[in-house]
């Protein structure tokens, strides 16, 4: 059995506590990395991360590196504050990497 974690700013993620997820409020990139590492070590199944926190390059490279491993699946979710489209961009990037063409252009 594996747990599910949420990392992000408190406002966006507090509600997930009512679903029984482990909620880890953070603000700085360092804290994000620490929280991620902790959840990796404890073998979480899924870690949800709010999008604005994934802008930081060190966080991004951490996520990229973790892709080699089975779990946790690090998934980006929108935050309550700012609207970024990193989650979609990531998917688009994967398509570009795999096919060489930007096939998702039609899906916004």
């Amino acid at each position: 059995m594996h747990k599910v974690g949420v990392i992000g700013d408190l406002d966006s993620i507090i509600g997930y506590r009512a679903l029984g997820m482990t909620v880890k409020p953070v603000t700085k990139p360092d804290e994000v990395l620490d929280a991620l590492q902790l959840m990796v070590d404890e073998e979480y199944a899924i870690v949800f991360l709010t999008e604005p926190l994934a802008i930081d390059s060190s966080v991004q490279s951490f996520i990229e590196e973790r892709r080699q491993h089975r779990i946790p699946a690090i998934i980006l979710i929108p935050s309550a504050k700012e609207k970024t489209n990193i989650g979609k961009e990531q998917l688009r990037g994967a398509v570009r990497k795999a096919t060489g063409i930007d096939l998702l252009g039609d899906i916004r």
Binding site: V4, I14, G20, A73
Partner: peptide, 23 residues
């Protein structure tokens, strides 16, 4: 929101599609 609930637990298994092993 602090109180109550046992932590959410998931079962993780693997599926193999064309030698890509994903949870």
């Amino acid at each position: 929101l602090l109180t109550g609930l046992p932590p959410l637990q998931l079962e993780v298994s693997e599926v193999n599609t064309m030698s890509v092993i994903s949870p």
